[in-house]
Design a protein around this nucleic acid. Structure first.
Lengths: 250, 250
DNA sequence: CGCTTAGTTGAGTTCGTTCAACGACTGTGG
DNA sequence: CCACAGTCGTTGAACGAACTCAACTAAGCG
């Protein structure tokens, strides 16, 4: 596996953050921006397929995704894997290490990923000096919780076809909100990832995706999924969508 | 359904909180205690079976469970129900309403439940004046996230028997930490709840629980489950447990 | 050129489902 | 006091969704 990590002390100044201007994110006050810029310690770039965080490890860092796709997962002793959620630009990762000491899940990159690096030790300073940012972090945690609720509903109670439609609609909607699709609506994911997210076997996942393909909703190609009809995926899944409000990020 | 809600403006002063002295919870400074006591607006008592919060509703309140058992759930349009997690003393509920405006899940009482009532509007004051309590709220949200991760792993990748063992071990361990069992280790839950948590049918849930009963690990009785061998449940599930550290609550 | 990874497809099996019926218990109203 | 309805748990039988096993194609890479 050709994985590599490159840590740069080089920092894109937060004032020039490529995410900040997106309509999807809430605006920062000058004060907040200055603090966050100071809070940020550097950047990390990883290749597709490499591991960003490992279950059981103690990490001194928190990260915000700047670009790329990845996923969080847990494994059972015998190798069974469950993908918990996907990470995309603006997402905060590593917060859970704050409460348990060690990470309770692993994080892996689906595409090349770049991350802003923060020091966990200095989190309390943020809480002390910038209540609005502290509130944002809670907001972000509560949002993740909400998404996990929906995933649970999906795995627990939706049929295989509904589940697949839900997951693809979910990833599609997130990508769209972030302006990740320029022309081709492509999700960089393998069928194995889909299977490990939906709690299905790879074979049955393949057959289920085939059905979505036959209906003209998606097209599978070059290690990924092209979404042709997000509306219909949403309709099949019976999901309400994420909502259009602005969200914070650090 | 004989449900009722009783709202008391009567407040158990936080200084005499029955939860606070438990070894499971972190201690508060005098300052924090005073603020929380002021933050608390009253108490709410509900009967077993009544609904505390409804999906889609706008609630002006946050609650902390003082006593009793309950659960959070979501439903699909056709009535399929997924139980997301259980609520027990010390748990904060309603936080998700803060980010989405309306609740994304419902909450129902399994036993008589009493709750501390807080006003959501005043949450920002807490963030401004008590960073340590703000951090606690984030901590609580991150903990919920961690539990949902484990539930997802369970539903997605564990077998029916492992799932059932995990759920019962989970509820048992939570009850034990809170000192809820005096003598009889009884979890007030029906098999329908178990089924809706595990993503299984009621029939198959019954047959699976029967197997656990035959092994002498549990005994089913009077609308609930008596745990006879928590250790073995833990072993079957392959779960690591919650960990023994202290936790905060508001 | 062989090796690996990703995707596809068919056949047979297993796990979990639905349907259906029944017993035990609780509460309610006549 | 009994009749009745409602909830909860139990069990058997038949069915179906999803699984494993296995074989094969196509693409990418050293």
């Amino acid at each position: 596996m050709a994985t590599s990590k490159r840590i740069h002390s080089f920092k894109t100044p937060c004032e020039q953050c490529p995410l900040r201007p997106l309509p999807h994110f809430r605006e920062f006050s000058r004060d907040e921006l200055e603090f966050v810029s100071h809070f940020k310690r550097g950047e990390l770039a990883v290749d597709a397929g490499s591991t960003i965080l490992v279950e059981g490890a103690h990490s001194a860092h928190l990260f915000t995704v700047l670009s790329g796709w990845g996923f969080r997962y847990k494994m059972l002793e015998d190798g069974r894997r469950q993908i918990l959620n996907y990470i995309m630009p603006g997402d905060l990762i590593g917060l859970q290490g704050t409460i348990a000491g060690e990470m309770q899940h692993s994080v892996e990159a689906l595409s090349p990923v770049s991350l802003c690096v923060f020091e966990r030790d200095r989190l309390m300073t943020l809480y002390n000096k910038h209540p609005s940012l502290a509130f944002d972090i809670t907001w972000i945690a509560a949002r993740e919780e909400r998404i996990l609720d929906e995933h649970l509903l999906s795995i627990g109670r939706r049929t295989a076809l509904e589940r697949a439609a839900y997951l693809l609609a979910f990833l599609f909607e997130r990508g769209r909100q972030l302006g990740l699709f320029n022309g081709r609506k492509f999700i960089p994911i393998t069928q194995q990832h889909i299977a490990d997210t939906l709690g299905l076997s790879i074979v049955h996942t393949n057959k289920t995706l085939k059905k979505l393909g036959e209906r003209g909703l998606i097209r599978w190609q070059e290690r990924g999924c092209e979404v042709l009809n997000g509306e219909e995926l949403l309709a099949i899944s019976g999901w309400e969508g994420l909502g259009e409000g602005k969200r914070p990020f650090i």
